[in-house]
């Protein structure tokens, strides 16, 4: 290990490594709080990928063309892969996937609230890809340089694969907007529903985000919630204009002085409400995950039992 300041306490040495942008690896010494914060954040991220399969999975069987069906299935499958990379990264910190899933199923662990909103029309597949994945990418790209090595490496892989997700979403929106009036209405209606929840994806305002400061210090996080939210609005408003759609916020206006868009206030009451479990789909999303896990238990057991029998037979034969 590069010992930057041998006379300092382990905590100070650790911080010195972080400040020097040296990655932390699984067996390195780390403060317990750093480990806990990472497990919380990475598992939350993994859970979001897993639960995030459900709203889009909802449209795989109804995709309007074979090409769209293949793309959507491949995309949702990627999310399963991303969940898997992230669970693996968290496992290097000494937790197990089973433990993380148990925390998800009991409601102890959180996942991104965006997935507690329903997907009601085909245009929602456009909005989820374009807006939700767009927001996710803003969050994720800085994580490729996050201080914990396995997390950063998992994110590099995720980001590489994620790049087609937003494009396919935008393409769906573009096709709808260039299509029949009924399709354009579908697109606008979906944007109206998804815009604000997407802004909520960046989390509470910086003033109300107690973990941000420490996470920034540890370089787990590299931008604040409000910084990313502003970046997102600046990116998306012109794209909506290109599509001929209107963002459902009358306060959106270019601010020449700030060189950024002004925008309205997120409905924080709704935000906290959904976080606390009172969104339309909180119950069924979690239920779907619990059910898949419970109904899969006998399959997982059978595979283990069979593997054990094989091993035994091989031992006898040897």
């Amino acid at each position: 290990m590069e010992t930057l300041a041998p006379d300092l306490s382990p905590e100070a040495q650790f911080q010195a490594r972080i400040d020097a942008d040296i990655r932390i690896e699984p067996k390195d010494w780390m403060p317990e709080a750093y480990r806990k914060t990472l497990i919380r954040q990475i598992s939350q991220h993994a859970h979001s990928e897993l639960v995030g399969m459900l709203p889009e999975g909802n449209w795989i069987t109804r995709a309007p063309s074979l090409k769209r069906k293949a793309i959507l299935l491949a995309k949702v499958q990627d999310e399963a892969g991303h969940g898997l990379y992230l669970y693996s990264a968290a496992e290097t910190l000494g937790t197990s996937r089973d433990q993380m899933l148990a925390d998800l199923h009991s409601g102890k662990a959180k996942y991104s609230s965006i997935f507690n909103y329903p997907t009601l029309s085909w245009a929602d597949m456009g909005c989820v890809g374009w807006l939700v994945d767009g927001a996710a990418i803003l969050n994720q790209v800085p994580l490729c340089r996050t201080s914990y090595g396995p997390y950063a490496r998992a994110m590099v892989r995720v980001c590489k694969e994620e790049s087609f997700h937003q494009r396919q979403g935008f393409e769906i929106m573009q096709t709808l907007c260039e299509g029949a009036p009924v399709q354009k209405e579908m697109a606008q209606e979906a944007l109206n529903r998804w815009w604000w929840p997407t802004l909520m994806m960046f989390g509470p305002k910086d003033a109300d985000s107690p973990n941000t400061e420490q996470s920034m210090k540890w370089r787990i996080k590299r931008f604040t919630n409000d910084e990313l939210r502003q970046k997102f609005v600046d990116m998306m408003v012109p794209q909506a204009e290109f599509l001929g759609l209107k963002v459902p916020d009358d306060k959106v206006q270019w601010n020449e002085e700030r060189q950024a868009y002004d925008f309205g206030e997120v409905d924080w009451e709704e935000f906290w409400n959904v976080v606390k479990g009172n969104g339309l789909c909180n119950h069924e999303r979690l239920q779907a995950r619990v059910q898949a896990h419970e109904e899969g238990a006998w399959v997982r057991e059978a595979a283990l039992a069979h593997a054990a029998k094989r091993k035994e037979r091989a031992a006898v034969a040897a």
Partner: peptide
């Protein structure tokens, strides 16, 4: 593809989707 998101374990969810694709 109806299995997608509901498989018995993440690794097999991916396998089922691969076959579907």
């Amino acid at each position: 593809s109806e299995w997608c998101g509901h498989g018995p374990v993440l690794e097999q969810d991916l396998a089922l989707s691969n076959i579907a694709l």
